[in-house]
């Protein structure tokens, strides 16, 4: 119970601090727009490849950009931890009765809220650019849930790395090093059926793929809800494990101070 209320207090703090940075908010909103427009134009003709399996690229790309945007936002969440460590805010919380879980969960709640706002914006923009989603509102909701479920483990691991490394450069480096390949090793930009065989195997173990796949299925005319659910459950399980790891990282941090 304490963990839940403390998480909310922390989430409120993070949301409030975020709301005080209008320029930062603008960037987080404009960035996905650029992806959608840029990649939408660049890969426009990709759908003509035999076997791509989507009527228009913007139909295909929109859920991909939702997943990618949320993914990268989550990858940066460790930066907030570094900031708190540098200011001494983290040490102050660690000598108070605050729940350790809340120090991670509060950030994840904020991450989730931002992810929902970004996702809705991208979907609306996709529709304006001519995308059609037969799955309707329900499909969009499921897509967003999957995107949020992806942001949780990524955000938690980013926080864990921040606590262990305590350097901005490491968090930036690690998140680029891990997230870019994960994005390209998924169907965010390219249909799975057109990937080389080895890649199709690798892709099955990629959480980014689970989210993109589940979201796209939900947006289709006749979703296979069993597969959607299976992927969502995998993401949820990964979230729990990652959050536990992040909480453990506090011990490692406290051993070193």
């Amino acid at each position: 119970m304490t963990a839940v209320t403390h998480s909310l207090y922390m989430a409120v703090r993070h949301m409030r601090n975020l709301a005080r940075q209008p320029l930062y908010i603008m960037f987080t909103l404009v960035q996905p727009v650029i992806w959608l427009v840029l990649f939408g134009q660049l890969f426009k003709n990709i759908v003509r490849l035999p076997g791509f399996g989507a009527p228009s690229y913007v139909d295909f790309l929109t859920p991909g950009v939702v997943v990618m945007t949320v993914l990268f936002g989550a990858g940066w969440s460790g930066m907030g931890i570094i900031h708190d460590l540098d200011l001494g805010v983290m040490d102050r919380f660690l000598v108070s009765p605050v729940s350790r879980v809340a120090l991670i969960a509060g950030r994840l709640v904020q991450l989730g809220v931002v992810a929902v706002i970004q996702s809705v914006l991208i979907v609306v923009l996709g529709l304006i650019m001519g995308a059609r989603f037969p799955g309707g509102i329900l499909g969009v909701v499921v897509l967003i849930v999957c995107a949020v479920l992806l942001s949780l483990p990524v955000g938690a691991l980013s926080c864990a790395i921040a606590l262990l490394a305590r350097k901005e450069e490491t968090v930036i480096g690690a998140s680029n090093f891990i997230l870019l390949p994960l994005t390209f090793l998924s169907s965010v930009f390219m249909a799975e059926s057109l990937m080389p065989a080895w890649m199709q195997t690798v892709v099955r173990f990629n959480p980014v793929q689970w989210a993109a796949d589940a979201g796209r299925m939900a947006l289709s005319a006749h979703p296979d809800w069993g597969s959607v659910l299976a992927r969502a459950v995998l993401l949820a399980a990964l979230s729990v494990v990652s959050a536990w790891l992040a909480t453990r990282a506090f011990r490692a941090y406290q051993r070193s101070v």
Binding site: R13, N17, D84, L87, V89, V95, P97
Partner: peptide
């Protein structure tokens, strides 16, 4: 933790709040 107050060497204030 409930019995103590602590003012560390580093400030510990959230500068954005």
């Amino acid at each position: 933790r409930l019995a103590i107050g602590c003012v560390g060497q580093k400030s510990g204030i959230d500068s954005a709040s």
